[in-house]
Design a protein around this nucleic acid. Structure first.
Lengths: 339, 339
DNA sequence: TTGAAAGCGCTAACAT
DNA sequence: ATGTTAGCGCTTTCAA
């Protein structure tokens, strides 16, 4: 089954492939009549240009990569949706790479992407990423990189983030106003930008309300749900157990709720809980959980738009290269004064 | 900034590009010494082969496409994870395309994929898909297609599904045994394979237990959450309102819970609820929801493995081309006799 | 307005 | 064991 190529079209129409090529790309110096003839046959024969040939020739692949830790998280699922929506509209293809939260994998992936497979990259780094050289090499190779949510500072062509510090401050303040005096903060990694921003917002609120920061209330979690549950369980047994928990990542909601249940602590009566999360089912959890919700879809969309703008060679202004979208504090039962 | 290509390596080593190419692919007829020299320099210079050139030349892109309705659903998020894991291990790249539940988009995407951009395709069709011609064209073009979860019958090179009929039967029987006599069934589309399978399991159980099937208890939902909530609300007002609801898709859990709350119906006392869902947070919903859980990650993994096998030219046996993985019925509070 | 020819970077058949 | 050459399918000068 012979695939239809320009050669076949050209032969049938008694034209050269050059003319066919130009006609298809609507070049100025082809007669209207010829254009029509070419277009007609191409449609009839269902001609589809070979992607690799054009990419090789034109040094453009019409493809972008999205590099993320996982998809099994509402945030990234929604963000991909945003990215894909924009990409599809603009005729771009989307390659998805998962780092599974491992820096080494991330580096391998970024290295391979130097080969021209993609025109640009959207990335949300692993919780361990700090090394900036891979991104710089991409820049040198002329491949723009836009960060979203989990960013690396000082590199790349742009970053789309949320007001993590502020949101975290607001959330912490809210809990304090519900009479919490001993708030625990669960985080993923100390090196991750969003983690520290969120932690700083928390610390800042404590300080503002003249509450002391206790080291034991900062719990650094891992990628293992089971371990986390145990660690939280542990945290809840301490003499002066916390009267509130902030989970700075969606992943930590489940172990938190489970640990509370194990300890027979009723949320929010015995302990209040809140989380950074895009969980669609936040309102029907037991109890409905107070969240900081990020505009995930929008972030994906904006990130893709910025990247595509860069790919079109348009200059990225200073004030465009760092876009901060607001998260929303949604207060629900889990942080209410009483059930 | 000149990219390093084989030409550069060859020049430096005073070899031909052919030799370099062979050395890099570890060909038999290159001396060990030369191989080492080439590999060494390639590493030093960070040589990365141009993906499009090899693809064009070799008619192989080392890329597969995953075509799905959405990612914002636990099932697909987990399935992608499975696919990506296998692909990464085998050095394949993964293009993700979202159909947004629109057949036209699906067809456009499949049509474009005829152009050699990918070697093979994994797909879960939209709720409206029935036309089989696009898939057949791909087959003609030598591009294998493997379906997962939402399949089209009679085409493609394989399908990975779950025992939907059986699972649904079991779930319905379970509800009947909890004394439910008036069970509503919410579905997405009547044409979708999984929908009908699940509906048939439900019908079959009713029949088995000598319960009559009532038309008003079959509610066909749309893609609009708001509309669905209203429709369910409506359903719950009927004279003889159902004493149980089966949501045959995860998406319908939220509107169901919300509608019950609006009607002041306590689950499971006033009405029982169960759903097909991979929700990680099923156990902490209010109340914890009884689910049929599909092995989503595994399905993605197996689907990718089957596709890659086909890509390696290995024959797909008859009994391999249709793989049925078992779903799990997880009984939780939402379907308990009493709270 | 159209066509001839070169070449994107790599690979494989066929010399040498 | 290494090199020469042709060509994957398309685009783009440049010439006709």
């Amino acid at each position: 089954m012979a695939t239809i190529g320009m050669k076949e079209l050209a032969r049938e129409l008694k034209l050269s492939t050059a003319t066919v090529s130009k006609a298809l790309r609507d070049s100025y110096d082809i007669s209207e009549e010829t254009k029509q003839r070419v277009l007609k046959l191409a449609r009839e024969w269902n001609y589809i240009p070979n992607a690799h040939a054009s990419s090789l020739r034109g040094k453009k692949s019409k493809t972008i990569a999205v590099v993320i830790p996982e998809v099994a998280d509402s945030y990234f699922a929604q963000a991909i949706n945003g990215v894909e929506t924009v990409a599809q509209k603009e005729g771009f293809h989307v390659l998805v790479y998962l780092t599974h939260e491992q820096v080494e994998k991330e580096n391998l992936i970024l290295k391979e992407l130097l080969n021209g497979r993609v025109d640009g990259i959207l990335i949300s780094v692993t919780s361990q990423s700090q090394d900036v050289t891979a991104v710089n090499k991409l820049k040198q190779a002329g491949i723009p990189v836009v960060f979203f949510d989990r960013v690396l500072e000082g590199v790349g062509d742009g970053q789309i983030i949320t007001n993590d510090f502020e949101a975290s401050y607001k959330l912490t303040a809210h809990l304090i106003e519900q009479d919490c005096k001993n708030i625990a903060f669960l985080l993923f990694s100390e090196s991750l930008n969003i983690s520290t921003q969120r932690m700083n917002g928390y610390k800042s609120a404590l300080h503002q309300y003249a509450l002391s920061l206790q080291d034991k209330n900062l719990l650094i979690c891992t990628n293992q749900d089971e371990e986390n549950r145990k660690a939280i369980h542990q945290l809840l047994q301490a003499e002066s157990r916390p009267d509130a928990i902030i989970a700075s990542v969606e992943k930590l909601i489940l172990p938190t709720y489970l640990a509370c249940a194990e300890r027979n602590l009723v949320i929010p009566n015995d302990i209040k809980v809140a989380a950074f999360s895009n969980l669609m089912h936040a309102s029907i959890l037991n109890p409905a959980i107070t969240t900081i919700t990020q505009p995930a879809f929008e972030m994906g969309k904006v990130a893709a738009e910025l990247l595509l703008k860069a790919l079109k060679g348009k200059p990225i202004d200073q004030d465009e290269s760092k876009i901060v979208l607001p998260s929303i504090l949604e207060i629900r039962t889990s942080s209410k004064l009483f059930l």
